[in-house]
């Protein structure tokens, strides 16, 4: 079972650990909506050090409104950015 469902609002954790992280810096602390569940995949934070990547992590595609990602976003206010994010980087949005 995945923790979040499509359509649910999620917050990307604001965390800055060292290591191999696939959650882009610019999206940490931002809120978006789950667009789809991509399946379960080996955790890159483990795979990066030669381990087997278990336990696998559910992976989501999360859609963010650009104007909520960038304070000074100057283009169409409906523009979005979709990013793949592993479950352990997400929390329910308040």
């Amino acid at each position: 079972m995945t923790r979040f469902a499509p359509g649910e609002r999620v917050l990307v954790r604001r965390a800055y650990p060292p290591g191999h992280i696939r959650t882009p810096w610019y999206i940490r602390g931002k809120t978006g909506v789950v667009e789809r569940i991509c399946g379960e995949f080996g955790n890159p934070e483990e795979l990066a050090y030669g381990r087997d990547g278990t336990p696998k992590q559910p992976l989501y595609r999360v859609r963010f409104l650009q104007k909520e990602v960038w304070d000074d976003y100057a283009e169409n206010p409906n523009d979005t950015v979709d990013i793949e994010i592993y479950e352990h980087w997400l929390e329910p949005a308040a």
């Binding site: 290591g19 191999h20 795979l47 050090y49």
Partner: peptide
């Protein structure tokens, strides 16, 4: 080598 090991080396 996994793709993430290669990326980690690049980073």
């Amino acid at each position: 080598i996994s793709v993430d090991e290669m990326r980690r080396g690049i980073e």
